[in-house]
Computed example of a mutant assay.
Amino acid sequence: MLVYYSPIFKKHTPPFRHPEAPDRLDHLLEGAREAGAEIKEPVMREDVWHIIESIHDKSYVELVRRLCREGHAEIDGDTYISSGTCDAAALAVSAIINAVERKETALIAARPPGHHAGVAGRALSAPSQGFCIFNTAAIGALYGEEGVAVLDIDVHHGNGTQEILYDRDLLYISTHQHPLTLYPGTGYPEEVGEGKGEGYNINIPLPPHTGDDVYIKVIDEIITSVLRQYNPRLVIISLGWDAHKEDPLADMKLSLKSYLYVFETVLRLQKPVIFLLEGGYNREVIRRGTKALIRLADAGEFAPGESQTSTDVHTLEKFEEIIKEVKSYVGRYWRL
């Protein structure tokens, strides 16, 4: 599996101590090299800003570009811009567009992340943009057009991706920590899409402390069934490592087994899969997870190196209530 990386992605630099910092990529690359991956530098597209402006409001794009020229600035309390942000974000979009065109399975080791960025920046009712500038996953999906699916496994709901794709008949599935307990406070089961997008937006909120046993059940009973019926020609995975039990910014209890299980499920479709880095703030998890992902994709090696986690009885009771509601909405549009 190709890994697309450029030092340009590290030029998006925080003006102060920040969890979303350039060194995240150092650990990703370490894992990729340990797995023997081919690392390739993406090529900046001449039409990239035109593509970005076809998805995001022109006034928002112009604001971001002006702030890049001015140097370090804050869009909000979570989200920063530096002099290198625009080049990094534009190259991330270029990388995913090129991967979509080539129909290849690849890992895009890019930053800044994007799934919280809506049409005009802050999306839906979120209090901030959550570290994100442009929505790389949604841009890739819309560029690929018919038959593209986005599977978002970041611990935070991809409110920006939902907003952008909400009226499109492109499948968007998000598993995330329940919005009552974590930013951005969106991603409820009843948010199913609208217009021709009705039924294509699937939110699976999970209670804090959800373990592998429950997450694997979600994959088997909902995600696998819907993906097979949709029969995507290409899948984009918004890959956040922050649902892992060791991540400092959330409260889930997943091990790498859950990650490899969902990766294997998607790879079995035998369609191109683009893995796009989103969140994940435990550097060692990023390294180990990247290594395990590449070994799975290249050699079929299922080696999480961690024991399966279990969900406690109290959390399991909450999950059963939530999953019943999820299935009641999803079942209106898909066979479960």
Rank of each mutant, 00 (worst) to 15 (best):
P248N: 11
H244W: 01
L260E: 04
S258Y: 08
E264G: 06
I274K: 05
S255Y: 13
L269H: 10
Q270F: 13
N282H: 15
P248I: 01
S258A: 14
L256R: 12
F263R: 06
K253C: 13
Y259M: 03
P248H: 05
L249N: 06
L276N: 02
L249E: 03
Y281R: 10
Y261I: 00
L254V: 10
K245T: 03
Y261Q: 01
F263G: 00
Y261H: 02
D251H: 14
T265V: 05
F275Y: 14
E264V: 05
G280Q: 01
S255E: 07
D251S: 15
V266G: 04
K245N: 12
V266L: 04
V266F: 08
K257Q: 11
A250R: 05
S258N: 11
K245V: 08
A243V: 06
V273K: 03
E264M: 07
L269N: 08
N282L: 06
N282P: 09
L249R: 06
R283N: 14
V273N: 05
A243S: 14
E246I: 04
K245R: 15
R283Y: 15
P248C: 09
S258E: 03
T265P: 04
L256Y: 08
P272Y: 08
V266I: 15
S255T: 15
R283P: 01
R283W: 14
H244M: 05
I274N: 04
A243R: 12
K257L: 12
K253S: 14
F263Q: 04
M252H: 14
Y259H: 05
E246T: 10
I274M: 10
A250I: 00
G280N: 07
S255R: 06
A243K: 05
H244S: 05
M252E: 09
K245M: 13
M252V: 11
E264L: 10
K271R: 14
N282V: 10
A250F: 01
K253D: 11
V273L: 04
Y259L: 02
R268V: 00
V262I: 13
L276R: 03
L260N: 01
L269Y: 10
R283E: 14
S255C: 09
V262D: 01
Y261F: 07
L277D: 00
V266T: 10
E246L: 12
D251A: 15
V273G: 08
R268N: 13
K245I: 12
D247A: 11
P272D: 07
